Computed example of a mutant assay.
Amino acid sequence: MDRRPGLSIRLKLTLSYAGFLMVAGVLMLVTAWLFLTRVRHIGLVFVPDYRLAVARDFAPLAATSLSFLLVFGLGGGWLLAGRMLAPLNSITHATRTAADGSLSHRIRLPGRQEEFRELADAFDTMLARLEAHVGEQQRFAANASHELRTPLAATKALLDVARADPGRPADPLLDRLHTVNTRAIDLIEALLLLSRAGQGSFAREDVDLSLVAEEAAEMLLPLAEKNGVTLETDGDIAPTTGSPALLLQLTTNLVHNAIVHNLPEHGSVRVTTGVRPGTVTLTVENTGEPVSPELVSRLTEPFQRGTERVHTDHPGVGLGLAIVRSITRAHHGILTLTPRPAGGLRVTVELPAGTTPPRHL
Rank of each mutant, 00 (worst) to 15 (best):
R3L: 14
R4T: 13
R4H: 15
P5R: 10
K12Y: 03
S16T: 14
F20G: 15
L21D: 10
M22L: 15
W33T: 09
T37V: 11
R40A: 12
R40W: 10
D49I: 02
D49M: 03
D49F: 03
L52T: 07
F58Q: 06
P60A: 07
A62C: 11
S65K: 08
L69V: 15
L70W: 11
G73Q: 09
G82R: 12
R83Q: 15
I91W: 02
A94M: 07
G101L: 06
L103K: 05
H105Q: 15
R106P: 11
R112W: 00
Q113A: 11
E114H: 15
F116C: 06
V134Q: 15
A141Y: 04
A142T: 07
L152P: 10
A153G: 09
A154D: 14
A157S: 05
D160K: 14
A162E: 14
A170D: 13
P172V: 06
L174W: 08
L174S: 09
D175A: 07
D175M: 01
R176S: 11
V180Y: 11
I185E: 13
A190L: 02
R196C: 03
A197F: 03
S201Y: 01
E205Q: 14
D206V: 00
V207L: 08
V207P: 13
L209R: 08
L211P: 00
V212K: 01
A213Q: 04
A216G: 04
L221R: 13
E225I: 00
E225D: 15
N227F: 06
E232S: 05
A238D: 06
A238Q: 12
P239K: 08
P239M: 06
G242N: 03
L246Y: 07
Q249T: 13
T251V: 00
T251L: 02
N257K: 05
V260Y: 01
L263R: 15
L263P: 01
E265W: 09
S268E: 09
V275S: 04
V275C: 05
G278S: 06
V280Q: 08
L282S: 00
T287W: 01
T287Q: 12
G288W: 01
E289F: 03
E289R: 10
E294S: 11
V296N: 05
R298N: 03
L299A: 08
T300M: 03
E301A: 13
Q304G: 00
T307G: 08
E308Q: 14
R309C: 02
V310E: 05
P315M: 09
P315K: 13
G316T: 05
V317K: 05
L321C: 00
A322K: 05
V324H: 01
S326C: 03
T328S: 04
R346G: 01
E350S: 12
P352I: 02
T355D: 07
T355I: 03
R359P: 06
H360Y: 06
